[in-house]
Simulated assay, not measured.
Amino acid sequence: MDPWGREIIAPAEGFAWREEHLGHAAHSTQQRDERDNAAWAHKSRVAAPAADAPGHLNRPHRAPHQRVLAEVHVKGFTAQHPDIPPALRGTYAGMAHPAAIAHWQRLGVTTLSLLPVQQCLSEPHLQPLGLPNYWGYNTLGFFSADPRWSTTPQDPRAAASEFRAMVASLHAAGLEVVLDVVYNHTPEGSEQGATLCWRGLDHRQWYAHETTATAHEPVRLRNLTGCGNALNVAHPMVSRFVHATPCAAGGSTLPSTGARWLNAFAPAARCLGPASAGPLPASTSLPCTTVSPPTTW
């Protein structure tokens, strides 16, 4: 799968964790598993270049002292709102419905901080329990809208269009839109985990390592996150990858949290923003230059 992919096709029967996804024997990371997992794997699909979202040049911008921020889960909020049509509850379209917008305006909210809306996977330990990762903090596609919150979840292109339309509607109503992104780990887990994307491209480049593999000792990843792995942001390519989304979404930082947030207008543009040693001033606008994925991908 392409880490920069803007459209991800799920397996026809839905994704399930299987030994074939590991790429190594279940009992030993030093023994290759040659079985083909193509029938059960997510795949990237080449997407047409995305046009600028409507009104993105005129998106609202509030001074920090004027912001009233509400953190919201797309499904959780819209599924419970009685004035949103049942067919739109739990979706991006539901978040853009006039009843939803009126709710936030009535409360005096200026800025909606959306919990993760990038395509994600549920962790392996949830599968036997029949539970999903509801919150989305296990990102599979950093440039792909989560299809679960779309009215057409089987069509990634339609999901992206619905997401962009939602953001355009919220902006038109004067609401800032902020995205919560999760770049500290990926769903591939520890050194004993799956090979879904990054690990298959370059295990050493993408992940921070505790040790180097030897003939007698397998490699161990630095588990700084409690999720099995941590992205190796010291590597230039990984840093470039991480800083692509702030530019894709229009960079913004909320100094009250000290965290990097994203004022979104498009879910999937590919841009290169500057690295930062810390939070940017609230007035900062990240410059960006359109780039293409490396030719090796």
Rank of each mutant, 00 (worst) to 15 (best):
236 P>D: 09
179 L>M: 14
237 M>F: 04
187 P>T: 12
121 L>N: 01
140 L>S: 04
175 L>K: 02
81 H>A: 13
63 A>D: 10
90 G>V: 05
295 T>R: 15
123 E>D: 11
281 P>V: 01
284 T>K: 07
32 R>D: 15
187 P>F: 10
44 S>M: 13
183 Y>E: 14
241 F>D: 03
213 A>N: 02
217 E>V: 07
168 A>C: 14
53 A>P: 06
276 S>Q: 12
220 R>I: 01
69 L>F: 00
125 H>Y: 09
231 L>F: 03
107 L>R: 00
149 W>M: 15
62 R>E: 10
123 E>Q: 11
182 V>A: 13
220 R>E: 00
119 Q>N: 02
140 L>D: 02
293 P>D: 15
68 V>S: 09
108 G>K: 00
217 E>A: 11
278 G>T: 03
169 S>T: 13
4 W>R: 10
258 G>S: 11
239 S>F: 09
100 A>Y: 00
194 A>P: 10
222 R>V: 05
180 D>Q: 08
85 P>E: 13
86 P>C: 09
14 G>R: 03
110 T>H: 00
148 R>S: 09
6 R>F: 02
210 E>D: 10
284 T>I: 06
2 D>L: 12
83 D>C: 11
18 R>K: 14
225 T>F: 04
78 T>G: 08
36 D>F: 01
173 A>P: 09
122 S>A: 13
18 R>T: 08
296 T>M: 15
166 M>W: 08
83 D>K: 11
208 A>I: 05
170 L>R: 05
154 Q>D: 15
3 P>N: 05
186 T>G: 12
17 W>N: 01
109 V>D: 03
185 H>N: 14
272 L>E: 15
111 T>G: 00
60 P>Y: 02
125 H>K: 04
281 P>Y: 04
181 V>P: 06
18 R>F: 05
170 L>N: 05
203 H>W: 12
